[in-house]
Write a protein that binds this DNA or RNA. Structure first.
Lengths: 270, 270
DNA sequence: AGCAAAATAGAACATATATTCCAAATTTCG
DNA sequence: CGAAATTTGGAATATATGTTCTATTTTGCT
């Protein structure tokens, strides 16, 4: 190996980027895995790293040399040594960031991370397993799933649409592009999955009402239990998200969206 | 061995305190050293730990057993697994859940909540405040912000677009609806904000390349540091998120997106 | 002080882990 | 299409590391 070994984590990263431009398949897998989980290097064996990268240990070995190390051990030493002092645990780091970096983007990040975490925690506490089951059941039986979610809910709706697509679940995203709302596409046997939050958008509510009137099942992803969607007989999954300023961290909502998607997807194919 | 091994760091600490009351000299040294540098356990050999405690390896060995472990290896495993909040192998755990279908939706939910929480925690650790500042700075100075993010990244892109809109930041979401890609809308003084993940979509990469070639600033929200966007000189914010197959828990990514939006929004109006 | 019990050091042994090597598969290039 | 070069998988080997054993020392007790 021509190059000499990186002496710091920074050098390591630079070398990793520099090298990973053109790399054969297996070695690329190594590069990707390492990039994604550098922190595992210090505490893993080659075998474990190789498994993580879905590669033979010998391949991972070769990868270490390309980076300039004599072998895995030498590379690992770099990470073990610089581990010194250890990573402060989450709570201290958070506090530190908040105090020290007041007003800076990093401080904001600390706040939002914290908000997101508590939201997720709450989600687990507030979701009723029975209702979740019902929702999955209903969606799994649908001929076709119609998804609606506008404005702030649109990211969630589009995520669900993407996931369904990937899992071959017939679904249609009603985005309202061009002011068209293809109400007619909704047919008996279909199910409507509506996502909406606090200033509940009229289109969404209208769509739920229409679907309810025609006797279709409706699954609603919304905040609080007093959401207007409830009165139309929808299966209502409520997520209470911690607000920070005017901005809603969608962590919990998106988490629930993924769960719904995956659960429905597997139930259908199983 | 009367007692059985501690299963968590907390249990470990309790046991350590409980035991260290009356201990022969050498073993006391072990206890003291371990108490002072628990974090070294994960990345050291018995020999190193023994040396640190000024004790023979065999003595340290005995110490491990007194704590209830079968040996040093078992004790080390505890620390290695829980290291850095430990990214246990979520992808395989989730795959099992999915395959066995034994996972009720609630079980899935619990997993994803956990995944989301660690992702967020990790985000806080890996984001470089300097780079975040640079990104905010660049975006705040832009005449107009062009946002691109397709497929799995689309929810994130659309969320950012929504937030900018709400904060009166001039921004344009390039969604590629109808196969149109309004390259010509991008003008000098504008900034491109690109969001893309692992199977990096060609359109996004192309757009970044074009913008870079014209000398425009580019901010990239991507995974791992080896993302192809890096080579075009983009300010790269990398988020490592657990994903398997089509499913990426976007918690961390969205969190970062909100932070960016809010920081840019306030900087502009301030 | 003298004896028994406990503790210790260090070497011997066992095991886990890294590393190397080479034949087979794949890709590249003429 | 075929030869050369590269890349890969897997078994073989070397090394580092954990673990156990026992003679020796220290401690505690009467």
């Amino acid at each position: 190996m021509e190059e000499k070994a990186p002496a710091t984590i920074k050098e390591f990263e630079e070398r990793l980027i520099e090298v990973s431009e053109d790399l054969p398949k297996r070695l690329r897998q190594c590069a990707d895995y390492v990039a994604a989980s550098k922190d595992r290097i210090a505490v893993s064996t080659v075998a474990e790293m190789a498994e993580g990268a879905r590669v033979q240990p010998s391949a991972f070995m070769r990868f270490c040399r390309i980076l300039g190390f004599s072998g895995f051990s030498e590379m690992q030493r770099l990470f073990r040594d610089s581990y010194a002092g250890g990573w402060p645990d989450y709570s201290t780091r958070l506090k530190h960031l908040r105090e020290k970096a007041e007003g800076s983007p990093s401080a904001l990040l600390a706040e939002f991370v914290d908000v997101g975490r508590t939201s997720l925690e709450n989600l687990l506490k507030t979701i009723d397993p029975k209702v979740l089951d019902d929702a999955v059941e209903a969606l799994a039986k649908a001929e076709m799933i119609h998804i609606i979610g506008l404005r702030r809910s649109f990211p969630v709706a589009s995520y669900i649409a993407y996931a369904f697509e990937k899992m071959n679940v017939p679904a249609m995203l009603h985005s309202g592009v061009g002011g068209l709302d293809n109400h007619n596409a909704i047919r008996p046997g279909d199910v409507l999955l509506a996502v909406t939050f606090s200033p509940y958008s009229a289109e969404t509510v209208g769509m739920v009402e229409a679907a309810g009137a025609r006797g279709l099942s409706v699954v609603a992803l919304t905040d609080t239990i007093v959401s207007p969607l409830r009165k139309f007989g929808a299966i209502t999954l409520s997520v209470s998200e911690v607000d920070f300023g005017a901005f809603r961290s969608l962590s919990a909502t998106l988490c629930l969206a993924i769960v719904l998607s995956v659960a429905v997807g597997t139930k259908r194919s199983g």
